[in-house]
Design a protein around this nucleic acid. Structure first.
Lengths: 228, 228
DNA sequence: TGTTGTGAAAAGTTTCACAGCT
DNA sequence: AGCTGTGAAACTTTTCACAACA
């Protein structure tokens, strides 16, 4: 089969809204751990993650009861639990399709590596791009995808192509055995049951901001994040 | 004051979830218009935008009643209404702070221009970056922000710095008069009332995908988009 | 006839507030 | 005394289903 083994598919599911916040808690917890604190209250974690303390407590309760009343949460233990819940105890390999501006920036992005993802392959249909070396990786033709996925145990595909290519690239990814896709192309991609697509459209983010900018300060929600 | 005039702050507010989808409808509508169709049903628009038809109808009803029963929506009229609701009848100028990998990719990104945003300035604290020319723009020191915002009527700031710099850059942006910020840095930024921050953390998106990948096909929501 | 627009029901999410435990 | 964990209430969002109407 494809990619690393899937573990722990037995826990009861965590609400989507909570799943989308767990990475924020993880980021905050790592910063807190680096600051040297051994325990943290829901209040302090909430401040560090940019949410409310009630949310933190409710969200963490879905993982189990890992806090101590009167004291707070053990930072390292909680980091472990959150990483486990998110499936980050293993490292994941990703392939980036479309080595234009954005694809190249993603290939160079240190943040992925720092947080446990390995950019294991780069593909592009354009022969002019093929053979390019980025961060020690050679850009390969899209046709090589099945082989690359197999050899590097890749589990996640990232689409950074123009909109017109997105659907066909997604289909190739699914054929190659990928079940999780992050789509940066400004296009809807349709995939079979059992495949998860998450989409990020940079211009859409600006358009949403434009709405609140245009409306002025009236009903402005001060934090309009990206989630679910 | 700062940036283009704010118009139409008088309409009743549109639900956040709807605001986050309007750009998707706009994208789909433009594609449909290019395909030559003059009218579109909620069903067809839903398919093109990757949502359900009930959502389309409910969402569009917040803008007013622009459809014709038995027929559908006039594509061009609807494009106009959606653009107006989002405040996209005017063009918006943006400044990108942090000209590393991601900042450079964003500066080159054609998608912004195509959808009505103008990258009007680039800033970085690093003297080695200052003076660089990208797409005809010279990278300026962060200190020049107030002047740049004023001169180019910039309304939106984009943070593409490392996490450590994000908060201080956000503060400079607010001081310079910006009220809308898109934050790509993996850090929480705190801003005063009346300022809107929207955050996109690329590694967080992968972490969310990792959760669903790890869980396997059980409760996998096939579309887990980024929104609100 | 075909499709919108929308009340009403259902589902999901957030907030409240406090009992329960350390 | 302090902070978690959680039912219950409030709110938001989605879905349903159908009357209204071109």
């Amino acid at each position: 089969m494809t990619g690393p083994k899937r573990v722990d598919a037995t826990r009861r599911p965590i609400p989507e809204a909570t799943v989308a916040r767990l990475p924020l808690y993880l980021r905050a917890l790592v910063a807190i751990a680096e600051g040297g604190d051994a325990t943290v209250s829901s209040e302090a974690l909430a401040a560090a993650a940019g949410v409310t303390s009630a949310k933190v407590r409710k969200d963490l309760s879905y993982l189990g009861s890992y806090g101590t009343r009167g004291v707070g949460y053990d930072v390292w233990h909680l980091i472990h639990e959150v990483r486990e819940a998110l499936g980050l105890t293993q490292h994941w390999s990703i392939v980036i399709a479309g080595i234009g501006n954005l694809g190249q920036a993603l290939a160079h992005y240190r943040g992925f590596t720092e947080r446990g993802f390995r950019v294991a392959a780069l593909v592009d249909t354009d022969p002019a791009k093929q053979g390019m070396r980025i961060e020690g990786l050679v850009v390969r033709p899209l046709e090589d995808l099945p082989e690359l996925v197999e050899d590097a145990a890749i589990a996640i595909g990232v689409i950074a192509t123009p909109a017109t290519a997105a659907q066909s690239v997604a289909e190739r990814m699914v054929e190659a055995g990928l079940r999780s896709i992050l789509n940066f192309a400004p296009a809807v991609v349709t995939v079979p049951e059992g495949v998860t697509v998450r989409k990020v459209d940079l211009a859409v983010e600006l358009q949403i901001l434009a709405y609140y900018e245009q409306r002025g300060a009236d009903d402005r929600p001060s934090d309009v994040s990206a989630g679910s």
